[in-house]
Design a protein around this nucleic acid. Structure first.
Length: 374
RNA sequence: GCGAUUGUGGUGAAGUGGUUAACACAUCUGGCUGUGAACCAGACACGCGUGAGUUCGAUUCUCAUCAAUCGCC
Protein backbone atom coordinates (compact mmCIF):
# COMPACT_ATOMS: atom_id res chain seq x y z
CA UNK A 1 0.00 0.00 0.00
CA UNK A 2 2.79 2.40 -0.87
CA UNK A 3 0.47 4.66 -2.89
CA UNK A 4 -1.56 5.46 0.17
CA UNK A 5 -0.23 7.37 3.13
CA UNK A 6 -0.75 10.46 5.23
CA UNK A 7 1.88 13.16 5.05
CA UNK A 8 1.58 15.50 8.00
CA UNK A 9 3.13 18.88 7.29
CA UNK A 10 2.11 20.84 10.34
CA UNK A 11 0.42 20.37 13.69
CA UNK A 12 -1.29 23.35 15.29
CA UNK A 13 0.64 24.47 18.35
CA UNK A 14 -2.45 24.99 20.48
CA UNK A 15 -4.65 22.04 19.54
CA UNK A 16 -4.57 18.61 17.99
CA UNK A 17 -5.39 19.96 14.54
CA UNK A 18 -3.15 18.67 11.77
CA UNK A 19 -2.50 19.84 8.24
CA UNK A 20 -1.11 17.66 5.50
CA UNK A 21 -1.65 15.56 2.41
CA UNK A 22 -3.43 12.29 2.03
CA UNK A 23 -1.79 10.46 -0.84
CA UNK A 24 -4.01 8.07 -2.79
CA UNK A 25 -3.75 6.16 -6.07
CA UNK A 26 -5.93 8.89 -7.58
CA UNK A 27 -3.93 11.85 -6.39
CA UNK A 28 -3.09 13.64 -3.20
CA UNK A 29 -5.63 15.69 -1.32
CA UNK A 30 -5.18 18.16 1.51
CA UNK A 31 -6.44 17.39 4.99
CA UNK A 32 -8.43 18.14 7.03
CA UNK A 33 -11.02 17.67 4.31
CA UNK A 34 -14.72 17.37 3.74
CA UNK A 35 -15.90 14.56 1.46
CA UNK A 36 -19.25 14.95 -0.35
CA UNK A 37 -21.44 11.86 -0.39
CA UNK A 38 -22.50 10.21 -3.63
CA UNK A 39 -24.19 7.07 -2.40
CA UNK A 40 -25.33 5.78 -5.78
CA UNK A 41 -22.17 6.83 -7.61
CA UNK A 42 -23.40 10.39 -7.98
CA UNK A 43 -23.41 13.33 -5.64
CA UNK A 44 -27.06 14.09 -6.20
CA UNK A 45 -27.63 16.76 -8.88
CA UNK A 46 -23.91 17.54 -9.35
CA UNK A 47 -21.55 16.62 -12.16
CA UNK A 48 -17.93 15.61 -11.49
CA UNK A 49 -16.87 18.89 -13.09
CA UNK A 50 -18.99 20.85 -10.64
CA UNK A 51 -17.52 18.88 -7.74
CA UNK A 52 -14.02 19.64 -8.96
CA UNK A 53 -14.86 23.30 -9.35
CA UNK A 54 -16.15 23.33 -5.77
CA UNK A 55 -12.79 21.95 -4.71
CA UNK A 56 -13.84 18.42 -3.84
CA UNK A 57 -11.15 15.81 -3.34
CA UNK A 58 -12.42 12.48 -2.10
CA UNK A 59 -16.05 11.61 -2.66
CA UNK A 60 -18.05 8.74 -1.16
CA UNK A 61 -20.11 5.97 -2.64
CA UNK A 62 -21.95 3.18 -0.90
CA UNK A 63 -21.25 -0.54 -1.11
CA UNK A 64 -24.71 -1.72 -0.05
CA UNK A 65 -26.59 0.56 -2.41
CA UNK A 66 -24.32 -0.05 -5.40
CA UNK A 67 -24.43 -3.77 -4.82
CA UNK A 68 -28.21 -3.67 -5.18
CA UNK A 69 -28.12 -1.28 -8.12
CA UNK A 70 -26.49 -1.65 -10.57
CA UNK A 71 -24.53 -4.48 -8.94
CA UNK A 72 -20.77 -4.64 -8.38
CA UNK A 73 -20.23 -6.83 -11.45
CA UNK A 74 -21.63 -4.13 -13.71
CA UNK A 75 -19.38 -1.53 -12.12
CA UNK A 76 -16.42 -3.83 -12.53
CA UNK A 77 -17.27 -4.41 -16.19
CA UNK A 78 -17.49 -0.64 -16.62
CA UNK A 79 -13.89 -0.46 -15.50
CA UNK A 80 -14.47 0.37 -11.86
CA UNK A 81 -16.22 3.23 -10.08
CA UNK A 82 -13.89 5.96 -11.31
CA UNK A 83 -14.57 5.17 -14.95
CA UNK A 84 -18.21 4.29 -14.37
CA UNK A 85 -19.03 7.67 -12.84
CA UNK A 86 -16.32 9.62 -14.65
CA UNK A 87 -14.59 10.81 -11.50
CA UNK A 88 -10.82 10.70 -11.57
CA UNK A 89 -10.25 11.87 -7.99
CA UNK A 90 -10.10 9.57 -4.98
CA UNK A 91 -13.24 7.64 -4.08
CA UNK A 92 -14.17 6.05 -0.76
CA UNK A 93 -16.81 3.36 -0.39
CA UNK A 94 -18.71 2.97 2.83
CA UNK A 95 -19.36 -0.62 3.72
CA UNK A 96 -23.04 -0.79 4.48
CA UNK A 97 -22.42 -0.53 8.20
CA UNK A 98 -24.51 2.61 8.30
CA UNK A 99 -27.37 0.74 6.65
CA UNK A 100 -27.25 -1.62 9.63
CA UNK A 101 -28.43 1.46 11.50
CA UNK A 102 -30.61 3.24 8.95
CA UNK A 103 -32.35 0.09 7.71
CA UNK A 104 -32.56 -1.41 11.19
CA UNK A 105 -36.04 -2.84 10.74
CA UNK A 106 -35.00 -4.59 7.54
CA UNK A 107 -31.93 -6.47 8.68
CA UNK A 108 -30.80 -9.23 10.96
CA UNK A 109 -27.33 -9.46 12.49
CA UNK A 110 -25.58 -12.73 13.20
CA UNK A 111 -21.97 -13.55 13.91
CA UNK A 112 -21.55 -14.35 10.23
CA UNK A 113 -22.81 -11.02 8.96
CA UNK A 114 -25.91 -9.02 8.16
CA UNK A 115 -28.94 -10.15 6.20
CA UNK A 116 -30.80 -7.24 4.65
CA UNK A 117 -34.26 -7.40 3.26
CA UNK A 118 -33.68 -5.46 0.06
CA UNK A 119 -35.66 -2.24 0.43
CA UNK A 120 -36.43 -2.26 -3.29
CA UNK A 121 -38.03 -5.66 -3.78
CA UNK A 122 -37.97 -7.42 -0.41
CA UNK A 123 -35.41 -9.98 -1.53
CA UNK A 124 -32.97 -11.14 1.12
CA UNK A 125 -29.33 -10.28 0.67
CA UNK A 126 -26.50 -11.43 2.92
CA UNK A 127 -23.45 -9.28 3.60
CA UNK A 128 -20.55 -10.77 5.52
CA UNK A 129 -17.29 -8.92 6.17
CA UNK A 130 -15.68 -11.01 3.43
CA UNK A 131 -18.49 -10.46 0.91
CA UNK A 132 -18.40 -6.73 1.63
CA UNK A 133 -14.67 -6.61 0.87
CA UNK A 134 -15.21 -8.64 -2.29
CA UNK A 135 -17.82 -6.14 -3.46
CA UNK A 136 -15.61 -3.21 -2.56
CA UNK A 137 -12.73 -4.71 -4.49
CA UNK A 138 -14.97 -4.97 -7.54
CA UNK A 139 -16.15 -1.39 -7.09
CA UNK A 140 -12.53 -0.32 -6.91
CA UNK A 141 -12.52 2.72 -4.62
CA UNK A 142 -9.24 4.07 -3.24
CA UNK A 143 -10.40 3.87 0.36
CA UNK A 144 -12.77 1.19 1.58
CA UNK A 145 -14.51 0.53 4.89
CA UNK A 146 -14.78 -2.71 6.75
CA UNK A 147 -18.26 -3.92 7.64
CA UNK A 148 -19.24 -2.69 11.07
CA UNK A 149 -22.35 -2.34 13.15
CA UNK A 150 -23.41 1.25 13.56
CA UNK A 151 -25.35 0.85 16.79
CA UNK A 152 -28.36 3.04 17.55
CA UNK A 153 -28.21 5.65 20.29
CA UNK A 154 -28.71 5.20 23.13
CA UNK A 155 -27.69 1.58 23.54
CA UNK A 156 -27.01 -0.20 26.79
CA UNK A 157 -23.53 -1.16 27.79
CA UNK A 158 -23.80 -4.92 27.44
CA UNK A 159 -25.22 -4.69 23.94
CA UNK A 160 -22.55 -2.21 22.91
CA UNK A 161 -19.80 -4.38 24.35
CA UNK A 162 -20.94 -7.44 22.42
CA UNK A 163 -21.36 -5.35 19.30
CA UNK A 164 -17.87 -3.88 19.59
CA UNK A 165 -16.39 -7.36 19.98
CA UNK A 166 -18.24 -8.50 16.88
CA UNK A 167 -17.26 -5.42 14.90
CA UNK A 168 -13.64 -6.15 15.84
CA UNK A 169 -13.93 -9.75 14.65
CA UNK A 170 -15.52 -8.49 11.44
CA UNK A 171 -12.68 -5.99 10.99
CA UNK A 172 -10.14 -8.81 11.28
CA UNK A 173 -12.06 -11.00 8.86
CA UNK A 174 -12.36 -8.16 6.38
CA UNK A 175 -8.68 -7.41 6.64
CA UNK A 176 -7.79 -11.05 6.04
CA UNK A 177 -10.06 -11.15 3.00
CA UNK A 178 -8.74 -7.94 1.49
CA UNK A 179 -6.35 -8.59 -1.39
CA UNK A 180 -6.13 -5.51 -3.59
CA UNK A 181 -2.93 -3.58 -3.00
CA UNK A 182 -4.26 -0.34 -4.43
CA UNK A 183 -7.01 0.11 -1.86
CA UNK A 184 -6.70 1.32 1.73
CA UNK A 185 -8.99 -0.56 4.12
CA UNK A 186 -10.01 1.42 7.20
CA UNK A 187 -11.03 -0.06 10.54
CA UNK A 188 -14.00 1.54 12.28
CA UNK A 189 -14.03 2.41 15.97
CA UNK A 190 -17.39 1.85 17.62
CA UNK A 191 -18.31 1.83 21.32
CA UNK A 192 -21.05 4.40 21.54
CA UNK A 193 -20.80 6.80 24.43
CA UNK A 194 -18.76 4.41 26.56
CA UNK A 195 -15.23 5.70 27.00
CA UNK A 196 -13.68 2.36 27.89
CA UNK A 197 -15.25 0.64 24.87
CA UNK A 198 -14.03 3.39 22.54
CA UNK A 199 -10.52 3.00 23.93
CA UNK A 200 -10.67 -0.76 23.74
CA UNK A 201 -12.02 -0.80 20.21
CA UNK A 202 -9.44 1.72 19.01
CA UNK A 203 -6.54 -0.16 20.60
CA UNK A 204 -7.65 -3.52 19.22
CA UNK A 205 -7.99 -2.09 15.73
CA UNK A 206 -4.59 -0.44 15.94
CA UNK A 207 -3.10 -3.84 16.82
CA UNK A 208 -4.45 -5.09 13.49
CA UNK A 209 -2.61 -2.23 11.80
CA UNK A 210 -4.98 -0.55 9.35
CA UNK A 211 -3.83 2.19 6.98
CA UNK A 212 -6.51 4.46 8.44
CA UNK A 213 -9.14 4.59 11.16
CA UNK A 214 -12.72 5.77 11.26
CA UNK A 215 -14.75 6.96 14.19
CA UNK A 216 -18.22 5.54 13.67
CA UNK A 217 -21.49 5.52 15.52
CA UNK A 218 -21.59 9.31 15.48
CA UNK A 219 -24.28 11.71 14.25
CA UNK A 220 -27.10 9.25 14.72
CA UNK A 221 -29.23 11.36 17.02
CA UNK A 222 -26.95 11.75 20.03
CA UNK A 223 -26.50 15.18 21.63
CA UNK A 224 -23.57 17.21 20.29
CA UNK A 225 -21.72 17.03 23.61
CA UNK A 226 -21.95 13.24 23.55
CA UNK A 227 -20.55 13.19 20.02
CA UNK A 228 -17.70 15.48 21.02
CA UNK A 229 -16.92 13.19 23.95
CA UNK A 230 -16.90 10.17 21.62
CA UNK A 231 -14.24 11.90 19.53
CA UNK A 232 -12.14 12.78 22.57
CA UNK A 233 -12.48 9.21 23.81
CA UNK A 234 -11.11 7.83 20.55
CA UNK A 235 -8.44 9.98 18.92
CA UNK A 236 -5.89 9.64 21.75
CA UNK A 237 -5.63 5.93 20.98
CA UNK A 238 -5.14 6.28 17.24
CA UNK A 239 -1.65 6.46 15.71
CA UNK A 240 -0.59 9.99 14.80
CA UNK A 241 0.71 9.01 11.38
CA UNK A 242 -2.53 7.45 10.12
CA UNK A 243 -5.59 9.28 8.81
CA UNK A 244 -8.60 9.63 11.11
CA UNK A 245 -12.04 9.79 9.59
CA UNK A 246 -15.07 10.98 11.54
CA UNK A 247 -18.00 9.32 9.82
CA UNK A 248 -21.21 11.07 8.94
CA UNK A 249 -20.31 14.40 10.45
CA UNK A 250 -20.96 17.55 8.48
CA UNK A 251 -22.32 20.24 10.77
CA UNK A 252 -20.01 23.20 11.11
CA UNK A 253 -19.55 23.05 14.87
CA UNK A 254 -18.82 19.31 14.85
CA UNK A 255 -16.27 19.64 12.05
CA UNK A 256 -14.47 22.38 13.95
CA UNK A 257 -14.57 20.27 17.10
CA UNK A 258 -13.23 17.21 15.29
CA UNK A 259 -10.42 19.06 13.58
CA UNK A 260 -9.28 20.38 16.94
CA UNK A 261 -9.09 16.81 18.17
CA UNK A 262 -6.98 15.71 15.22
CA UNK A 263 -9.57 14.40 12.78
CA UNK A 264 -8.52 14.56 9.13
CA UNK A 265 -11.57 13.45 7.17
CA UNK A 266 -15.29 14.18 7.35
CA UNK A 267 -18.20 13.13 5.19
CA UNK A 268 -21.86 13.97 5.36
CA UNK A 269 -25.04 14.03 3.32
CA UNK A 270 -26.10 17.12 5.23
CA UNK A 271 -24.99 19.80 2.74
CA UNK A 272 -26.53 18.08 -0.27
CA UNK A 273 -29.67 16.85 1.43
CA UNK A 274 -30.61 20.09 3.11
CA UNK A 275 -29.77 21.98 -0.08
CA UNK A 276 -32.36 19.92 -1.95
CA UNK A 277 -34.77 20.82 0.84
CA UNK A 278 -34.00 24.54 0.61
CA UNK A 279 -31.65 24.99 3.58
CA UNK A 280 -28.29 26.62 3.12
CA UNK A 281 -25.16 27.05 5.15
CA UNK A 282 -23.79 30.57 4.91
CA UNK A 283 -21.05 32.50 6.67
CA UNK A 284 -23.72 34.06 8.86
CA UNK A 285 -25.58 30.85 9.59
CA UNK A 286 -28.57 29.00 8.28
CA UNK A 287 -30.78 30.33 5.51
CA UNK A 288 -34.05 28.69 4.48
CA UNK A 289 -34.37 29.94 0.93
CA UNK A 290 -38.09 29.09 0.84
CA UNK A 291 -38.82 31.80 3.42
CA UNK A 292 -40.94 34.71 2.24
CA UNK A 293 -38.36 37.27 3.35
CA UNK A 294 -36.27 36.34 0.29
CA UNK A 295 -39.06 36.86 -2.23
CA UNK A 296 -37.65 40.20 -3.31
CA UNK A 297 -34.08 39.80 -2.10
CA UNK A 298 -31.88 40.39 -5.12
CA UNK A 299 -28.60 39.85 -3.31
CA UNK A 300 -26.43 36.69 -3.37
CA UNK A 301 -27.04 33.90 -0.90
CA UNK A 302 -23.70 34.55 0.79
CA UNK A 303 -21.59 37.49 -0.26
CA UNK A 304 -18.58 35.85 1.39
CA UNK A 305 -18.89 32.83 -0.91
CA UNK A 306 -17.09 32.34 -4.21
CA UNK A 307 -19.24 29.50 -5.57
CA UNK A 308 -20.92 29.45 -8.96
CA UNK A 309 -24.30 29.97 -7.32
CA UNK A 310 -23.32 32.97 -5.23
CA UNK A 311 -21.36 34.59 -8.04
CA UNK A 312 -24.27 34.48 -10.47
CA UNK A 313 -27.66 34.23 -8.80
CA UNK A 314 -29.86 36.06 -6.29
CA UNK A 315 -31.86 34.77 -3.35
CA UNK A 316 -35.07 35.81 -5.08
CA UNK A 317 -34.20 33.64 -8.08
CA UNK A 318 -33.14 30.71 -5.91
CA UNK A 319 -36.38 30.97 -3.94
CA UNK A 320 -38.31 31.07 -7.18
CA UNK A 321 -36.58 27.94 -8.47
CA UNK A 322 -37.21 26.19 -5.15
CA UNK A 323 -40.90 27.08 -5.13
CA UNK A 324 -41.27 25.84 -8.69
CA UNK A 325 -39.40 22.62 -7.85
CA UNK A 326 -36.94 23.29 -10.64
CA UNK A 327 -34.01 20.87 -10.71
CA UNK A 328 -31.59 23.69 -11.47
CA UNK A 329 -32.40 25.21 -8.10
CA UNK A 330 -31.44 22.04 -6.25
CA UNK A 331 -28.23 21.95 -8.21
CA UNK A 332 -27.30 25.55 -7.45
CA UNK A 333 -28.08 25.13 -3.77
CA UNK A 334 -26.12 21.87 -3.60
CA UNK A 335 -23.15 23.52 -5.29
CA UNK A 336 -23.27 26.25 -2.69
CA UNK A 337 -23.47 24.02 0.39
CA UNK A 338 -20.70 21.76 -0.87
CA UNK A 339 -18.53 24.75 -1.67
CA UNK A 340 -19.33 26.28 1.71
CA UNK A 341 -17.98 23.28 3.62
CA UNK A 342 -15.01 22.81 1.32
CA UNK A 343 -14.19 26.49 1.66
CA UNK A 344 -14.49 26.15 5.42
CA UNK A 345 -11.91 23.35 5.27
CA UNK A 346 -9.60 25.55 3.19
CA UNK A 347 -9.80 28.25 5.83
CA UNK A 348 -9.27 25.68 8.56
CA UNK A 349 -6.13 24.37 6.86
CA UNK A 350 -4.75 27.87 6.50
CA UNK A 351 -5.45 28.59 10.15
CA UNK A 352 -3.69 25.37 11.21
CA UNK A 353 -0.64 26.23 9.17
CA UNK A 354 -0.51 29.59 10.93
CA UNK A 355 -1.13 28.13 14.40
CA UNK A 356 -4.34 30.07 14.89
CA UNK A 357 -6.88 27.29 14.58
CA UNK A 358 -8.56 27.91 17.94
CA UNK A 359 -8.99 31.62 17.27
CA UNK A 360 -10.35 30.84 13.83
CA UNK A 361 -12.79 28.32 15.28
CA UNK A 362 -14.17 30.76 17.84
CA UNK A 363 -14.49 33.59 15.37
CA UNK A 364 -16.13 31.42 12.73
CA UNK A 365 -18.67 29.93 15.12
CA UNK A 366 -19.51 33.33 16.53
CA UNK A 367 -20.30 34.68 13.07
CA UNK A 368 -21.99 31.47 11.93
CA UNK A 369 -24.35 31.46 14.88
CA UNK A 370 -25.06 35.18 14.69
CA UNK A 371 -28.28 34.61 12.76
CA UNK A 372 -29.17 30.97 13.14
CA UNK A 373 -26.74 28.07 13.28
CA UNK A 374 -27.28 24.36 12.80
C1' G B 1 -87.66 37.38 -19.71
C1' C B 2 -88.64 31.95 -18.38
C1' G B 3 -86.72 27.19 -16.58
C1' A B 4 -82.97 24.01 -14.42
C1' U B 5 -78.63 23.38 -11.56
C1' U B 6 -75.08 25.13 -8.18
C1' G B 7 -73.30 28.47 -4.38
C1' U B 8 -68.38 25.56 1.89
C1' G B 9 -60.93 28.62 3.30
C1' G B 10 -56.27 31.26 -1.83
C1' U B 11 -57.84 26.79 -5.15
C1' G B 12 -60.26 21.89 -5.99
C1' A B 13 -63.62 20.03 -3.14
C1' A B 14 -66.04 16.17 1.20
C1' G B 15 -69.70 16.52 4.85
C1' U B 16 -73.48 16.75 9.05
C1' G B 17 -80.11 19.22 12.47
C1' G B 18 -76.05 19.21 17.95
C1' U B 19 -68.45 18.54 20.88
C1' U B 20 -62.40 20.70 17.36
C1' A B 21 -66.12 21.59 9.03
C1' A B 22 -62.60 15.68 6.03
C1' C B 23 -58.98 15.46 2.38
C1' A B 24 -55.73 17.47 -1.38
C1' C B 25 -53.10 21.49 -3.51
C1' A B 26 -51.34 26.39 -2.58
C1' U B 27 -49.38 29.54 1.29
C1' C B 28 -46.45 30.24 5.88
C1' U B 29 -42.86 28.06 9.40
C1' G B 30 -39.55 24.24 11.43
C1' G B 31 -36.42 20.02 10.78
C1' C B 32 -32.92 17.01 8.02
C1' U B 33 -25.52 14.49 9.98
C1' G B 34 -21.09 7.11 6.92
C1' U B 35 -28.70 9.29 1.71
C1' G B 36 -34.75 3.80 1.78
C1' A B 37 -34.81 11.37 1.96
C1' A B 38 -36.82 16.58 -4.89
C1' C B 39 -38.24 14.15 2.20
C1' C B 40 -40.66 14.75 7.06
C1' A B 41 -43.39 17.73 10.68
C1' G B 42 -46.46 21.83 12.25
C1' A B 43 -49.70 26.22 11.17
C1' C B 44 -53.68 27.84 8.19
C1' A B 45 -62.42 28.45 7.40
C1' C B 46 -65.08 31.90 15.31
C1' G B 47 -67.31 30.04 9.68
C1' C B 48 -70.23 26.91 4.98
C1' G B 49 -73.16 33.52 -0.93
C1' U B 50 -76.63 37.32 1.69
C1' G B 51 -81.16 38.23 4.67
C1' A B 52 -85.11 36.29 7.35
C1' G B 53 -87.81 32.05 9.32
C1' U B 54 -88.60 26.92 11.62
C1' U B 55 -86.05 24.66 15.90
C1' C B 56 -83.70 23.98 22.48
C1' G B 57 -79.99 24.24 18.46
C1' A B 58 -78.80 25.27 11.37
C1' U B 59 -73.47 25.34 7.26
C1' U B 60 -77.21 21.28 6.99
C1' C B 61 -84.68 22.37 6.63
C1' U B 62 -88.08 26.62 4.54
C1' C B 63 -88.72 31.34 2.08
C1' A B 64 -86.69 35.56 -0.13
C1' U B 65 -82.62 37.73 -2.42
C1' C B 66 -78.02 37.96 -5.04
C1' A B 67 -74.42 35.44 -8.13
C1' A B 68 -72.59 31.75 -11.55
C1' U B 69 -73.40 27.97 -15.24
C1' C B 70 -76.50 25.56 -18.78
C1' G B 71 -81.00 25.42 -21.68
C1' C B 72 -85.26 27.97 -24.03
C1' C B 73 -87.52 32.37 -26.04
Amino acid sequence: MKDFYLEILHVDKNSGARYGYLHTPHGKVEVPMFMPVGTLATVKTLSPEELKEAGAGVILANTYHLSLRPGEDIVKKAGGLHKFMNYDGPILTDSGGFQVFSLAEKRKITEEGVTFKNHLNGEKRFFSPEITIEIEEKLGADIIMSLDECVHYPADYSYMKDSVERTLRWAKRGKDAHKREDQALFGIVQGGEFSDLRKYCAEELVKMDFPGYSIGGTSIGEPKEVMFQMIRDTTPYLPLDKPRYLMGVGSVDAILEGVGDGVDMFDCVLPTRIARHGALMTSKGRVNIRDKQYEEDFTPLDDACDCYCCKNYTKAYLRHLYKCEETFGKRLLSIHNIRFLIHLMEEIRLAIKEDRFLEFKDAFLKKFNSVKGF
